[in-house]
């Protein structure tokens, strides 16, 4: 079994989590840029964060044979702070990096004018840099936020097949399916989706153009819920091939549109000098 978690915030997780994920079958992941709980007040703290997403995190992941990729963006929450507006100017530099496979997370949080401006501008960046886009949908007023997101995507001119609308639920899945965008689901029981509900949605809407992720971060979340969903799919009558489609081939197809996924020897740890500091503790 091979699992590709298409949305997980490893910055907020420990190295032990990487180890447990590898043991559970996770071989690749995408870490979207988002907010860290504590609001940032300068462009510099964003660039340090982005540098970690293309430097330190891939290194940590490689210790356990996990391929780490990132998506880079100014997230909707912090798009409302004028002190962070300059982040938009540094994005092109990061979108050119080898392991940056999409623009994201973009979209709405409170559906303000500032959020919409940043959302639309970053969809244009996705087009200019030939990257897919990852769209976060809001927790509050989700159904209308999802519809409005689809409208902004359509107006941007980006091809819907290059967009995933994430954090969907029973109420919002149908509109996204109809839009031609990919449907993303976060197995994050308190606020988003649980494994049993996910299996029901897969039964009803099928396994095509669906991305299932843990979205694990600093909140009450669990990086092994991808594996828990796999196990429940199998127990519910889905085949190994269905599982491989949802948890490997779908994310590979979606993020592969960047032309930058690096999965060739995905089962082998990256070539390193013998030994490493993480397995031994910091020095």
């Amino acid at each position: 079994m091979r699992i590709f978690d298409p949305h997980i915030h490893m910055t907020s997780r420990t190295t032990d989590d990487y180890e447990r994920m590898a043991a559970a079958g996770v071989r690749a992941l995408v870490e979207p840029a988002f907010w860290l709980g504590q609001p940032r007040t300068s462009v510099g703290s964003f660039t340090d964060y982005f540098d970690a997403l293309v430097g330190w995190e891939p290194f940590r992941a490689s210790q356990f044979g996990i391929r780490h990729h990132a998506t880079i963006a100014l997230n909707p929450k912090e798009a409302n702070d004028p002190r962070c507006a300059g982040v938009l100017d540094v994005l092109p530099r990061y979108l050119e990096k080898d392991r940056v496979v999409a623009v994201g997370e973009i979209g709405y949080d409170s559906m303000t004018a500032e959020e919409e401006t940043a959302f639309a501008a970053q969809l244009q960046l996705a087009i200019a840099h030939e990257l897919p886009a990852l769209v976060h949908t809001p927790h509050r007023d989700k159904a209308r936020g999802t519809q409005r997101s689809i409208k902004v995507v359509a107006e941007s001119g980006i091809e819907p097949g290059r967009v995933v609308i994430d954090h969907l639920n029973e109420v919002t899945v149908a509109t996204v399916k109809d839009s031609g965008c990919w449907a993303g689901f976060s197995i994050y029981p308190d606020t988003k989706m649980s494994p049993p509900r996910m299996v029901e949605i897969l039964k009803e809407f099928g396994t095509e153009r669906v991305l299932v992720n843990s979205a694990a971060d600093w909140g009450r979340s669990d990086p092994l819920l991808t594996r828990a969903t796999v196990d429940l799919m199998l127990a519910s009558g889905f085949t190994d091939d269905d599982v491989d489609l949802v948890f490997w081939r779908n994310p590979v197809e979606f993020y592969g549109q960047s032309g930058k996924l690096e999965l060739d020897d995905d089962d082998a740890p990256e070539k390193l000098f013998e030994g490493n500091s993480i397995l031994r503790g910091g020095s």
Binding site: F273, E274, G275, N276, S277, R280, S283
Partner: peptide, 12 residues
């Protein structure tokens, strides 16, 4: 000394 701590081969 950091190389020794990190397990890097000293041949580098």
């Amino acid at each position: 000394l950091k190389c020794v701590f990190m397990g890097l081969p000293l041949s580098i």
